[in-house]
Nucleic acid binder design. Sequence first.
DNA 1: ACATCTTTGCAAATGATTTGCAAGTATAAA
DNA 2: TTTATACTTGCAAATCATTTGCAAAGATGT
Lengths: 139, 139
Amino acid sequence: MEKCKADNLLKITNTVKTEARETILHAVLDSERPMSANELHLMVKNRGIDLATVYRAMKLFTEKGLVRPVHADSGLTFYEKSCEHNPPHAHFICENCGGIECLKPYGFDESAFFIKLGQQKEVSSVELILKGRCSSCAS
Amino acid sequence: MEKCKADNLLKITNTVKTEARETILHAVLDSERPMSANELHLMVKNRGIDLATVYRAMKLFTEKGLVRPVHADSGLTFYEKSCEHNPPHAHFICENCGGIECLKPYGFDESAFFIKLGQQKEVSSVELILKGRCSSCAS
DNA sequence: ACATCTTTGCAAATGATTTGCAAGTATAAA
DNA sequence: TTTATACTTGCAAATCATTTGCAAAGATGT
């Protein structure tokens, strides 16, 4: 729990701590679903943080393993926190409204599955995206 | 086999047949791996076909179910033929060179897997992408 | 062949993301 | 703590993939 505070995460990942980064990381940690750079910017612009800084932070955090990018068909990239409390999982993207949701854990031994898939290659990450209609758009 | 000829596919999908579309569809059918709009354009530009036309064809073919888009982290979209001979499968994208390859079929009952994943939602398609280093880049 | 609807090339517009740059901020050494 | 050096940031302009407006060319039904 404590270990997931923005402040601490920056420290343990050896990332230079700045007000902007701390603020942006907070925004990511507070979000239950993956957020686009634009959405994150909306959350932090009142503190004078530029969109370019959000993008630079996302790039950095991704390299540090603090966030994971999720790529939607629309061309948008969403970012979600990556920590013990939020292990890799599938995502659902609504083809109608573009909304994104995290799906529950797969419920079977997915690691074996991925290893099997990747046995021919040196796999570093997996992205599993389901597309369809979300409940709001279905009604 | 015969059924997979561009000419025929356009007919059975009720798509107005034009020289450009036939040429572009041929390029897709001939490719073993998913191709970007740019790559396809390189293959057909000598026939005076514009990049915009390639994009328009990809959009149309996707709607008709003739091709499937595959979205890479880089922001590029690749397109692959979609027919009985080429059922949905996972893709491998090299983080180093950006190259894309099709992986062998999963080797277990993936439909049950996807149904299980999508049981909470109305799922229309699935995209499974593994990332890492391809054999050329690994050496 | 005719009239109508569709498709295409070209150029300009978009929209997300990136980059150059000068000014502001962090870090380590003195 | 002051200083020198390296990193970060806001801003504006640049990129890059993809889309769109438009007038000309092509396809379809009569």
